[in-house]
Design a protein around this nucleic acid. Structure first.
Lengths: 264, 264
DNA sequence: CCGTACATTGTACAACGTACGCCGTACGGT
DNA sequence: ACCGTACGGCGTACGTTGTACAATGTACGG
């Protein structure tokens, strides 16, 4: 359990690392035995396999085949490692040419790409980026995703806001999904087991007079999803709302479809 | 630097604690010197004053005037304490009667109440609740907030999804704001200082040929907000999109206003 | 009035990030 | 060719976290 904060160290040094602007002046003494990418790749593999909690400096060092403190010759600290991991992930995202497709299809595809990213690397959604890691990966991602709003008539400021809105939604959904999975794993209880264990107590305590709407709606939603929270359904529903909300801005006349976005 | 996870312990025990169903059989031996509420209140005060990082079992115990391990006589562990803190917060939320107002006003008011909650207690947005703490506070909140969708014509399952969508949005916005504040505090750098320190390097690295759209849009957005990220603006913009997105579902005919919701 | 149930707590442990300082290597200058 | 030194590597250690365990002391039921 750790709040995976990023970017705490010297920001200028972080930028140099992200863009690999290591000032290699006159070399003296032994050459570095590993590369920055070795470390970042090992950390990503570790996070993919065992989650962000497993990404400790000791574990990463072990994976790289080096003593823990050796890592500090390559990076200032763990915060920078997290930044580098996230930027490396962003750099790998697919960027197919979607010119010619309608904006809603393109924007939905951006959402899906991000969702896939978080599905493959759930830890990425947990890294807090108060100031985002302005590395080559994020820049390429930003450049590409902004193009999804080409021909929407949005001015630049609004275009940025629209993209932020979309990405924040996908990220929040990914966090919810990750939290739900983590809870299920930690308590080693499925949703059914939980209700079997707690239903009786809840029944005595949730009288319908005190919470009539909550009991009725909660029961209906629970029955529909077979769970108290259903991240997948929340994502599908939310994405449609997000796209409709953007459509109200982009196509103010015909903003009336609540169907799911077409595939791309 | 901690992933504030909640609800890890025995779920049944957690429920008993939330609803204060402590089985007080025949008393023997010394009476407890404090109450559960003493501990929860002290923890909330601590979190309000110094953030969630400051809420350690030792600090809470100190605030209550007791040895650290004494807390474990009242709660199974820290996860349950976090659950209790969140539920206590929810119980305190205002719940004015908003019958008669249009749905968009009521829903906007729900968003504002939640935003105010996270403004007063930023740590609440950081507590991960894979399975939400089904205590009296959350139930009262759920009951009240569902009523904001009365007369919208939404069925129960959709009503739950709509509320979840709205609350997830507000929470994500609060997290972004908290992260931005934390970053600014930790690096002790304002946005202007950051750009002064990193602008030169960024300029050499962000050539407009590689990222034409990104550079242009980023510059426009940065100039408009005086910052790379502007949580307040993201919230205002996002809330309008959220309401428009819900409107497309609720008022499919006249879904065309992108003005901010009226006050309530 | 005493035995016991229970609240309280001191100590301890395994993790974490990382500061500090020593070791040995291999290059630049001569 | 050689040596001084800059620099990569790392062993050890510190302060922090949540909490397990066993000892201590208190106040009630019989």
């Amino acid at each position: 359990m750790s709040t995976y904060r990023s970017g705490a160290g010297d920001p200028a040094r972080t930028l140099q690392l992200l863009w690999r602007r290591l000032d290699d002046g006159p070399r003296r003494g032994p050459r570095p035995g590993r590369s920055l990418d070795d470390i970042v790749s090992a950390a990503i593999e570790l996070a993919d396999a065992e989650g962000l909690d497993a990404v400790t400096m000791r574990r990463v060092a072990q994976a790289v085949g080096v003593a823990p403190m050796t890592l500090y010759g390559y990076l200032p600290g763990k915060a920078e490692l997290l930044d580098l991991m996230v930027d490396a992930l962003y750099a790998r995202l697919p960027r197919p040419d979607r010119a010619g497709q309608p904006w809603r299809t393109r924007v939905a595809a951006v959402a899906r790409d991000n969702r896939d990213l978080f599905a493959a690397h759930p830890w990425a959604a947990e890294v807090a980026t108060g100031r985002p890691p302005l590395g080559p990966g994020l820049m390429a991602k930003y450049e590409y995703e902004l193009r999804a709003f080409d021909d929407t008539g949005l001015d630049d400021v609004t275009r940025d806001a629209a993209l932020t809105f979309l990405l924040d939604f996908v990220r929040a959904a990914a966090r919810s999904a990750a939290e739900a999975r983590a809870t299920r794993r930690e308590t080693a209880q499925s949703e059914e087991q939980w209700w079997a264990a707690n239903g009786p107590l809840l029944a005595t305590v949730l009288d319908e007079e005190a919470y009539p709407t909550a009991v009725r709606v909660g029961a209906a939603a629970g029955a529909a999803h077979n769970a108290a929270v259903d991240p997948d359904h929340a994502y599908e529903f939310g994405l449609d709302r997000v796209l409709d909300g953007l459509a109200a801005l982009i196509d103010p006349v015909a903003a009336r479809r609540s169907t799911a976005a077409d595939p791309g």
